[in-house]
Amino acid sequence: MNIILLNSKRGHSRTITLPRFLPALVLAVLVLIPMAAGVGAYWISYRVAPPSYSEEVAKRFQSSLERQSNEVADLKQLSEEQFRALTLKLADAQARLVRLDALGERLVDVAGIESDEFDFGGGELAMGGPEPQDSSAFAPPSFIEELDGLTETLERREQQLNILENLLANRNLENQTFLSGRPITQGWMSSRFGRRTDPFSGKVAWHEGVDFAGKDGSDVVATAAGVVTYAGERSGYGLLVEINHGNGISTRYGHAKTVDVKVGDIVRTGDVIAKMGSSGRSTGPHVHYEVLKNGRQVNPHPYIYRARR
């Protein structure tokens, strides 16, 4: 290979002859030697340095995979156990709901309430709707939907039972405060309400109550539930018990031998409140019984002879 050099100032040229192996040498220097260096470096690094993927790495990866598989299996078993437990709880809640419905039906029957507002198992629920176009699109309800439906049903039953409880409580209160019957357990009526001959003066006088005679020391009972507003000595009455029954109705029990209650006590129908005696203006053991309506004495006979609830 020849290289010609031109000199523009002197106007002559110069030829340089290169050896024939020079191009091959240049090619070797520029291409082959770097390739050989790269291959050699890779070979040295592969032989000398430990590979990134080895049998030990594979074992560690396999161990981690097995551990994760065991954790997934344990989690699956725990989920299945919890699901079975939830299923049992759901079945128990449904059984309790059935018993709750039976109790509700019994309470409605005992209370004698005729109302369509209480649906404690009273037949199938009214339902309807157009026929579905694609029956294959139906999917059974999920477990969560079953729990939500059961929760809604229980809440509805709880509301109904609360209403029923309030109705029964009000009815029971009305029954307890319903004034009826005699204030004694043993004895007889010795003087009626109205005009009579006064046993002390012998003159015609107005008797504001009813007298019940009996054995000295026998029981005097409340004719309705209420609150004791007076218990002690009062002029003319001797030892007196007065009970407020609400709605403007009060009763008085006079001439007692002893008083068994105190002011503020809550008494029920038939509770013993005193013992029959002859204290105060009296001719013998008896109970002077008065019924007051809005603070005025009224005839006790209608209350005495009406049937208890």
Rank of each mutant, 00 (worst) to 15 (best):
P183I: 03
D119A: 04
F193Y: 14
W43D: 13
A213G: 04
N70F: 05
E56S: 15
D271H: 09
A58Y: 06
A41K: 07
A91R: 10
F118L: 01
G284L: 00
I304T: 04
Q77D: 11
A213K: 00
N247I: 07
D260S: 10
L90G: 05
E66D: 14
S64T: 07
S45F: 14
G232Q: 11
E56G: 15
S115K: 00
I33D: 02
E242H: 08
P300L: 00
L78F: 15
P130I: 12
L164T: 02
G38Q: 10
L65N: 11
T151A: 09
D260A: 12
T223S: 11
D148P: 09
D134I: 05
V29P: 00
A91Q: 11
L78G: 14
A126D: 05
E66F: 09
E233R: 04
A73S: 14
H255G: 06
T15W: 00
A169M: 06
S115A: 02
R157C: 11
S180M: 01
I249Q: 12
Y237V: 08
K215L: 09
E174A: 11
R296S: 12
S13N: 02
F200C: 04
A231I: 06
G214I: 03
R14T: 03
T185K: 13
G122I: 00
V48Q: 12
A93P: 06
P302W: 04
T258D: 11
L173T: 05
L27Y: 10
S235G: 03
V220P: 01
I44H: 10
T151S: 08
G280N: 02
E71K: 13
G129A: 12
G248M: 03
T197S: 12
G123H: 03
F120K: 00
R309V: 14
A24G: 11
I144Q: 15
H301M: 13
A169D: 10
V291I: 03
A49D: 11
P140T: 07
H207D: 08
